[in-house]
Amino acid sequence: MYEAAHGRAPAVATGIKRAVPDSVVFTYQGDGDLAAIGTAEIVHAAARGERITTIFVNNAIYGMTGGQMAPTTLPGQVTETSPYGRDVKTAGYPIRVSEMISTLDGAVYVERVSVDSVPNIIKAKKAIKKAFEIQLQGLGFSLVEVLSICPTNWGLSPNESVKWLRDNMIPYYPLGVKKDATTGEVK
């Protein structure tokens, strides 16, 4: 296990994979980490078709630092640094990472899943397994975006959080396979 600087995990993973090509390497990144400070690293790791897997946990907020606006924060969502709700006129629009990464030729498998229900958790497990299989086959870059909750920083109970994820996040971040180059599927 390596701990990378904020946002740099795909570059660190690249270094490991290039140095020891038969190791299985994955990054585990939050939405602030991957979609804000680490955008360059993730885009280029995907574009290079690095044989690594990225597990991207999207909870629409910066959790570790106590609940600030993330690139994935929804329009109107209140956070510590968008106290009047995210105003797209000044703070811009949320980034749909899976769709964006899917446009890159080096990305082989990209799927968005959610962990809000048992069926969805089973789907998430399958997606992650598939992403690793692609790495093992040496096909290229794979990414699974996992929509998840953050009760503490959303200020909701766990049950309310699951409902909030379903009602607000899934409509903005549709679930499913965004790209599967092994079948030629691109959505």
Partner: peptide, 26 residues
């Protein structure tokens, strides 16, 4: 940009700057 232990500076500015007609950007 958020980072402990100074994140409250940004949080404070996000509340106050728009109120005084100035610019806050994360």
């Amino acid at each position: 940009y958020p980072i402990t232990p100074q994140t409250e500076v940004a949080a404070y500015m996000s509340r106050r700057m728009p109120k005084v007609g100035r610019v806050f950007l994360q």
